[in-house]
Structures are given as structure tokens and as C-alpha cells.
Nucleic acid binder design. Structure first.
Lengths: 184, 184, 184, 184
DNA sequence: ACATTCGGGACCACCCGTTCCT
DNA sequence: AGGAACGGGTGGTCCCGAATGT
């Protein structure tokens, strides 16, 4: 299904940059190169189904990236620092356009669409799971690991917002320093 | 200017719930009660100018609320806990609709509109300033206070996203506990 | 393409009566019977593209009419008289609403839209060509034929303006008499 | 009444360039510098009354110009040539924007507004009167003078249309040559 | 079965000419 | 004279079926 994948990739990119409501099907089809009429063959559920598929794909890709990053360091603090470095690099490389692929859609569409909210929830949970497991392996108790993972993910998500508003990586750097200090 | 204020209030409410792109001028005027044609008299810059005005108002209101909350406690950890309690209560009371009034618009419109990005940046800065001052008064060095304030704000912003995705206050509670422990 | 043709016909009629700016898309779609959304499938260029298409169609139809008329008489003066009679009849039959389908749009939109100006230019040129050929066949040298054709077309166009202002065929009759006398 | 005159001048300029429907009150007030609310104090009849006033002023100014030009030459052909030269110069100087100040409005609004149609009729009549008088003074019988004046005015009006479509003075030059030859 | 053209209204942000009340 | 208010209207785009052709 090459064209189906093209739709998803184009949607994921645009959702990450400008969210759900601001992304039109016309823009998606233009970017994907596939013809307009084919969209409803692959995604009879329309825009919403397409968005969920894009969130799931982007979420899984990022989950794999997080996992690869955090297991590459023996030290927990360094692992988290590297994770932030990856996100920082991606944001900066895109000219502060590409932050978290899930957060934007969550904030604007969670209220209106239960399907999107639940897809976002599952993605966030998968990320939290990876982080909590890494923290457990460093000696945290399960509950404490889950709490700390929540803090880490929340801080990164929040820093991505601040960074986009400030058009600088400053907030990510500050959060990075604080999280390292926390795990000394 | 009663009607001008009505426009701003209606816009602020809708922006907070569903963001910039999903909020139509028609919806704004319907909610404000003011007639359609008056909008472009008060806001010749159109939707964008209106959004900036709403962000500035909501930002200032929340800044005042943050300030009032954090100065009401002698203990820093408790001050932050109360701040989170306020945000948590607001989110829950609205049925997980009303999170941060700035974050959503930032994520979806910062790329497209420099005016909106810069308004968001100023609001976030004003909040960071209040938090940093409180931390300085608790003994933090200026740079450390700014870093810690960034972590706190980022963690709250991120927790608000996770809470909306999860449709529960769990993430806010977790972050609250972590931040209290951090300031013992 | 039946609906595409309907759009063009409706546009041509309205453009001829009231010009470009006074003709709304709503009025065009109401007259054509087709819905608004279909319009931008056939004419992605919007109102301007639609106007150009309508001018081209009306221009070609009138060119064919002019040609048929001027070749039907052996005498040049009589040929021109019949041409004016045709225009006069059309104007009077429509209650002085339907004059030249190109002139109105040219005057109001040539400045704002290069596409419309150039479409008008091509139509006028096609008419001049027909007239000049007829004059050449009556013995005029090519250059003189072109000049005389310009005078004839200009006089008819101008007389149509005066006739609409005066709400009478008087100006057309006067110009008719003068042009006949000129070719005795 | 300085501001009243400013309104009329601004309207006349815009009407000449782009016609009635395309000219907005906002554009008129912006150009005139006068405040919006004052317009309906001076012109309770609104846009239509304003347009009529602008047509009357521009019509009278041009009538005076025509008169001054045609009485300045002993030879009729030369008088008409100079008249065309004046119109040609004005058109070219404005970048083919400023043609006849009456024709555009006539074509697009004569059907919709009796007031505008009748104002246009009176202006054209005043011009025809000047031209006919000049022709009578050159020996034409009254009826013949009126007919010839109609041809002359119509030819000039038509040539102005063709010139704007062609974005060149060619049509005016051609008509000029023909009219001179006609009065040798 | 599969892909795409074509067609359909509702809705978008924006601006219109006009009038009210100070 | 004039700032504020007023709805209806502008051209344009939205996401989406229905018909069409392969």
C-alpha cells in the first residue's frame, strides 16, 4: 500500500507542525502526491481516522527511538539527557516547527474527538512505560518510577512548548540540566 | 468598550478549549453576543489580532493568579503544590476542557504567525518571572531560580497535556508529588 | 461537462449586464443551478478564471455573428449597417441591459487583472480582424482597413455606451447613418 | 465644505479607475482622509448620491476641457485631433488606468440605478452639445452636426476601451487619423 | 474490485453599505 | 460631525459522497 503510507506520512508531518484543525485534506493529498479521491478508499473514516493512524505511526516510531536512547546509557541522568538532546536536535533542525507529534493534536482535538484523545493516551502511555522501565532498572520502585517518568515526560513536553514559543532551545537546556541534577 | 471586551473573553475561552484553527469567528461572535460587523471595527487585524489580545488577557490573569498563589505560602514546595492544585481544579471543573490558555495556540500557530508566537513567548516569560522571583526569595541563586522555574512551568504544562489525553488528574498529581519532594 | 457550461453561460449573461465586480458568485451559482462547491472544481482560479472563460465564449460567439453578418452583403456600408442593426436589436430587446459583453469588464477590471485585460484584448482583436478582412475584400489596403475597422468597432462600442446612458437607440442610429455615408 | 469636496474627488478618481461596484466606501474614505461617519452627513443618499456627485463634477470638468480644446483651432479636424491627444495623454500618463470617467459607471450601473443612468446621460449630452456647436460653427447643419458629434464622441469612447484592453494608444491613434481624414 | 473524476453544500475569514447615538 | 455598532454578503475552502471509468 504505497499510497496509503504516503497519506499517513504526510498527515503525520503536517499534524506535528500545525495540528489537526489547521491541516486540510487538500494539503495532505498535495504533500502525499496521491490523488484526492483515493483517500476515502483507504480511510473511509475520513480525516479523523487518518489522524489516528498518523498519531499511532508517529507514536510508535518515537517510542522506539526513546527506548533505543535510554537503554544506551548506564547512567539514568545521562540517558535522560541524551533523550532531550534528540528532541532538541529534531526541533532545531526543523526550524522549531517539529515538536511533539502528539501534544498539539491532543490539546486541540481531545475535547472534540474521543478517538483522537484515546489514541493520544495510548501513545503517551507507551512512552511512559519505556521510561518507567528504565527507571525501575535503575532501582526505582514501580510506583516511584511511574511518577518520575511522568515528571520527565511532562517536563520534556512542556519544554518543547516553551522552546517553540521562545524560538530557542533554552528551555530544553534548562530542563535537561535540572533532570540531570535530579538523578545524580 | 463593553463589546470589545466581550470579543476578547469569548475568544480566550474558545482558544483555551480548542485552539486557534478550530475556533471560528462565527463561534466567537455567537458566544460574545456582539454583532458580526463590529468585530473588524475593534480588531482590524482580524482573527490573529483577536487571538493575540485574548492571549495577553488570559496570560495576565493567570500571571496574577500564579503570583497570588505562590506568595501565599512560606514553604516553596507547598506553594508549588497549591499552584498545581489550582490548575488541577480548573481542568477538572471544566471536564478536562480548559487547560493552559497559551499552550494550544502556541503549538498550532507559532509556526504560522510570528505575532502569536511572540505573544505566547511574552506570556510564558511573565509566568517564569513570577516563579523565579519566588524561588529567589527562597534562597535560589538567580540562574538556578530561572532554571528551576523553567522546570516547574514545563512540568505543569506537560502534565496538563497528559491529563487531557488521559482524561484524569493523575499526571498532575504525580508531578505535584515529585515537585514537592524536590523542594523538601 | 454540462455544469461547467452552465457556469460559463450564467457568468457571461451577468457580466454583460452588470460587469465583473457587481456580479457575485452566489448570483452566478443561483442562475446556473449548480452549487457553489462545484464551481472551484471546474474553475480553481475562481471568479477571475470564470470571467475569462465567459469572455472568451461570448467573444467567439459574437465574432461568428459579426462574420456572418458582414459577409452577407456585397456593399460594405450596408454590411456595417446590418451589423449595427443586430447590436441595436439585441440591446433594445433586453431593455438596454445587454450591450457589449466585453467592454464593461474591460473598463472596470483591466487595471486590476492582467488575465482579464488580455482576454479582452484578444476578443477585440478577433473582431477587428473580421472587420478588417471584410474591408480589404472591398478594396482597402491592409493598413487602411485596420484603421477603418478600429474606427468602426470603436464607434459601435461608444454608441452602445451612449445608448445605454440615453436609454434609447438614438446614438446607434446616428452612428449607423454616419458609417453608411462614409462608405458610399 | 472641504471634506465634502474631498469625498467627491476621491470618489471620482476611484470610479474612473475601477467603476462603481468595485469601489468601496472604505476605500473612498481612506483616500479622502475624511472620517467614515461624516460621509452620511454630507451624502445622506449614500454611495449612489456620492457617485452621482462625482460624475457631475468630473463631467463638468471634462466638458470645460473639451470646450477649451475645440475652440482653440480654426480647423475642425485639427480640433478633434487635439481633443483626442488630450484624452490619449491622460490615459497614458495614468498607466492606462484613467479613461472616461463616465463610461465605466454607465455600463455597470445604468441598469441598476436610474439616478446614475440619468446623470451619465446628462454628462454625455453636455459633451455632445459642445462638439455639435463646434461643428455647426464649421458649417454643419444642426442635425448633421449632432450626428457627427455622436460619431466623434462614440469613436473616442470606444477607442478608450480598446486602448485599455490593448494597453496601448494604438486604437486612439487610428481613430484620430480616421477622424482627421473625415474632416479634410 | 479499485481508482479517480466530479459534484455538493456548509462554512471560512473578511468586508460591505448603512445607521444609531453621542 | 463622528466613533461605534450592525447584519447580511463577499469570494474562497472545507471535508465529504456519488458517479464514473478502468
Amino acid at each position: 500500500m504505497p499510497s496509503r503510507d504516503d497519506f499517513i506520512d504526510a498527515t503525520a508531518h503536517l499534524l506535528r507542525r500545525q495540528g489537526y484543525a489547521a491541516t486540510g485534506l487538500k494539503e495532505i493529498t498535495a504533500r502525499s502526491g496521491a490523488p484526492r479521491g483515493s483517500l476515502y478508499f483507504h480511510f473511509p473514516g475520513g480525516k479523523e481516522q487518518l489522524a489516528v493512524a498518523a498519531m499511532e505511526r508517529a507514536g510508535e516510531q518515537l517510542r522506539a527511538g526513546i527506548e533505543a536512547t535510554v537503554v544506551s546509557c548506564n547512567d539514568v541522568g545521562e540517558a535522560l539527557a541524551r533523550l532531550i538532546d534528540v528532541m532538541t536536535a529534531g526541533l532545531e533542525r526543523s526550524g522549531f516547527e517539529q515538536g511533539c507529534p502528539i501534544a498539539t493534536v491532543t490539546l486541540e482535538a481531545a475535547t472534540a474527538s474521543e478517538g483522537i484523545r484515546s489514541a493520544a493516551d495510548q501513545v503517551f502511555n507507551s512512552w511512559l512505560h519505556v521510561l518507567a522501565e528504565r527507571l525501575e532498572s535503575a532501582g526505582f520502585e514501580p510506583d516511584a518510577a511511574r511518577r518520575r517518568a511522568t515528571l520527565v515526560l511532562a517536563a520534556i513536553e512542556g519544554a518543547l512548548i516553551l522552546a517553540r514559543a521562545h524560538a530557542s532551545t533554552g528551555p530544553l537546556i534548562a530542563v535537561r540540566a535540572e533532570l540531570i541534577a535530579l538523578h545524580d
